[in-house]
Design a protein around this nucleic acid. Sequence first.
DNA 1: GATTTATAAATGTCAGACAATTAAAGGTCT
DNA 2: AGACCTTTAATTGTCTGACATTTATAAATC
Lengths: 241, 241
Amino acid sequence: MKIEKSEDLSAQIAQAIRDAIIEGRMIVDERLPSEAELSEQFGVSRSTVREALKRLAAQALIRTQRGAFGGAFVNRLSYEEAYGQNVTTSTLLLSMNAVSFETACEARYAMERACAPLAAERRTADHLATMRAEIHRQAQPGLSDESFCASDVALHRALVDAAGNPVLSYQLAGAVEAMQPLMNMITFTARSREEIVTLHTKLANALESNDADGADAALCDLELYTLSLGQKFMASRASNR
Amino acid sequence: MKIEKSEDLSAQIAQAIRDAIIEGRMIVDERLPSEAELSEQFGVSRSTVREALKRLAAQALIRTQRGAFGGAFVNRLSYEEAYGQNVTTSTLLLSMNAVSFETACEARYAMERACAPLAAERRTADHLATMRAEIHRQAQPGLSDESFCASDVALHRALVDAAGNPVLSYQLAGAVEAMQPLMNMITFTARSREEIVTLHTKLANALESNDADGADAALCDLELYTLSLGQKFMASRASNR
DNA sequence: GATTTATAAATGTCAGACAATTAAAGGTCT
DNA sequence: AGACCTTTAATTGTCTGACATTTATAAATC
């Protein structure tokens, strides 16, 4: 295994194993050599090998099992795990890089609109039922802001899933969920749930009648309305200083 | 800091620190306590703390610096780092989960078409120049299959960047790059570069004249053509068995 | 044959040591 | 005073060796 220079040994070893997995030299569920064997092969101590393995475990590339005939195994990366990684990374990226509300909003709705035609074609009764249920919850008066936001995410998640493409779901659901903190700020102040529920209903109706253009229009309206809420919020925050 | 149970100590400690970063209790560039201090605080050995820190380093959440006044610091997650994580995760997800060519292709073009209207509006001369240069390279006869694929990725990357939304670029570029291995299989066998170059040119022309619909149409054509190439490839592979 | 008990292999954790790096403080010379 | 060297202390990186814990298999017992 080739190794770069001027990095921690544990990082180099992790990279070497990572490459082996990515390039297919190690297949799913294959067992890695034991920590003792690896430390011999790489000529380092067991601690260093362990640090390398923890790095890989943090990326869900391997899983470990204790006991006899245990060890580290190449992990089949599930959609669930990849999704979790994506949400963590996206959330931090947004919170650490002063992404404007406009930019985040634009990206989010651009991607959701990419799902709309597929969702209009393939949505099942299940997807529709989920969306209707969330809309119904959103219309209830006593709902807390946190619950309203969570319900909003669930509805948009259903839209994405309705496109029936797991790759699309994985990529987009992370983006949608990562933006929840930004969205929270806004719904906490603006009390315009009625309008949002109306637009959500319009979206669900369009999907129910397999109307791709109608779904797209509903999403465009929703984007514009969300943007206006955001700008109102930013303005009010600016004047309070 | 709260801790779950029945996981490795190092995983629990990593999660505790990760939560502190995600929830904003630690800010960018803030220094973590030294390994010795952390091992005291959590009541574990230094090795265990180190394994936890390596987990966080693998996710680019922290960076470490040796020497006096060194230590571990909360890392500002850059688009570059997030992008790298996304590519690694997406590549593995696709290679390990038997994603069909059709599904991957559909997801890819659905997302690229989401960029088209924005790109048609905002593309700069730079983006156009990049695309033209890649198209010119793709038309050269002696080009290897690997270089052709790399050029294809560069062109699509330019399209995504032309939308002028860094969040969109981060989300989509990973998806496009992760599909290169799948695309490689196909261009290795099908020798229809001429048609691809024609469609790429159509796309660049549409962007140059700020024609969103034309760009969308070009991408649709490209998707259909790519799909037909893929099906031809799959059929030929099936008959060879 | 079923159940219990040992065994061995592997990861998880700990303690202590030393090497390597690095910024800051202190010292020396001009 | 200012520039250059030297020391120092703090911190991460690495190594060694030990012991605890877990767990599948093999052996022993009933």
